[in-house]
Write a protein that binds this DNA or RNA. Structure first.
Lengths: 137, 137
DNA sequence: TCTATTGCTCCAGAAGCTATAGGTTTGAGG
DNA sequence: CCTCAAACCTATAGCTTCTGGAGCAATAGA
């Protein structure tokens, strides 16, 4: 049996976050000690590690819930799990694309060398005037 | 004089968001009509467009506050504006780098073709077992 | 003047935690 | 067995950047 602190140390998930996950229904409310403290079994440790990993990969709490529910049914086809991961991959790719545009825009803006006054600073001018942008955003 | 709706249409910032910006001190509380409705001048429209643009670029409300304060003093050196934009560029680049790692990880995970069962689904297995990852994250 | 549209304030919610306050339990050392 | 620090408990509020709704008042066009 693990205390919540043990679980936290072993998974790298902070204690308040574990309690939060319990509230959100990602992990079941565990047994309690006589003094009302949470006592976890090994299976909960694995479940939490799964959650941690998925969160690190940026999956939403809701997606993780779905994946966890799926993993309870090893006999079912796994197309759904594949779909969740693929969709997430698509959103990650979109984010990358958007950020790259911003990067370009900011690179242009930052070309101001900082050695003059705000009155003719390219950073300020570029922000004030959207039409100076090269791409839509 | 513009109503809040005019301002919203011209800048693409939603009405509640404009009021929120007022609350946050990004724009000054404008004059009011006899019936207590907000009435804006052209200068506020430009200020809001500046804010909108900077938000689109992902700058935080606090950074925008600083930039707006700077732009009130055209005679000052602009190194500070340059610094804010450069720092932001750095965080954007970091985000891109992190997302690219996730992209790779997800690509590997998604290699599961969806045509079998959850029990041996690569998506689920990869999420359960961090050691299957190629890079740290 | 009537009425559709727009505006007002206040408040709650979304996501995913994090922190604080004020109290209780646990477990190791003496 | 006793003590005491560390760990744990609950409940609640806060973070960030908005967004949406309720319930009511003002405005503008026909």
């Amino acid at each position: 049996m693990y205390s919540i602190g043990d679980l936290s140390r072993r998974t790298g998930v902070k204690i308040p976050t574990i309690r939060y996950y319990e509230q959100m229904g990602l992990i079941a409310a565990p047994e309690r000690s006589e003094g009302n403290q949470r006592r976890y079994e090994r299976s909960e440790l694995e479940r939490l590690a799964f959650i941690r990993h998925a969160r690190d990969l940026g999956l939403s709490i809701d997606s993780i819930k779905d994946l966890l529910a799926l993993s309870q049914h090893p006999e079912r086809p796994c197309g759904e799990a594949d779909r969740i991961a693929s969709e997430h991959l698509a959103t990650v790719r979109e984010k990358i694309a958007r950020l790259k545009k911003l990067e370009q825009e900011l690179e242009r803006i930052v070309a101001c060398d900082g050695n003059h006054t705000v009155g003719d600073c390219y950073v300020i001018r570029a922000l004030a005037d959207h039409s100076m942008c090269e791409s839509e955003h």
